[in-house]
Simulated assay, not measured.
Amino acid sequence: MASDRQLKLLDKTSWQILAILQENARIPFKELGKQVRLSAPAVAERVRRLEEAGIITRYRAELNLEKLGLSIMAFVTFRSFPDKCEELKLLLHESPEVQSSYRITGSDHYLAKVSVTSVGHLEQLVDRFITYSTVTTSIVLSTPISGRVIDDEIFPEVVEK
């Protein structure tokens, strides 16, 4: 839950800044300031406060994995065998194909987003995990929604008027 200090940072202008940065984290402060009607130093100060509050946690480049040869994306669920949960977690961490993993509720223990070069590569990845868990894969056919911007319309009660 957001702290009172964090909530005070989230006025309409801060939400505009966050939305713009989610679309283009490399935008110069001068241009960002123009878009939200603030000076470059004022925008820089707001961004600094959002970073210090832990609302902005990092900046990163988004890669086209298909152009890198990783043409298959899949979601994989893992139901750990008894006493194998820690080993499974370690293997998830050590596997470069795993883009992200989540400890989840329900009958499975982990969900991972993976990228591989081929179905054969996916099979090799699954084979590494079958000693530790029951594995279920779902290959991604398309991505209708990706990288959706989080803005004040999702959380209207958080925005200070």
Rank of each mutant, 00 (worst) to 15 (best):
S3P: 06
I56Y: 01
P82L: 03
S39Y: 00
L10Q: 06
M73H: 11
I20N: 00
V36T: 10
L18K: 08
E87F: 14
W15C: 03
S14M: 10
R26T: 14
G54N: 03
K30E: 02
R49N: 02
L21S: 07
A61E: 01
S80E: 07
K84R: 15
D4T: 10
W15T: 11
E31V: 12
A61L: 03
L63R: 03
L91P: 02
Q35N: 10
R58Y: 01
I56V: 12
A61S: 02
L91R: 10
S3F: 01
A61Y: 03
S3T: 15
D83K: 13
T77Y: 09
K34S: 12
A19K: 12
S14K: 12
G33P: 00
A19G: 12
L68E: 04
Q16C: 02
F29S: 04
F81P: 07
I20T: 08
Q22V: 05
Q6V: 12
E45D: 08
L90D: 07
R48K: 14
A53Q: 10
R58W: 01
I56D: 01
A74N: 13
R79M: 08
R60C: 04
E51D: 07
T13W: 00
Q35G: 05
L21N: 03
L7A: 14
K89F: 09
K84A: 05
R58T: 04
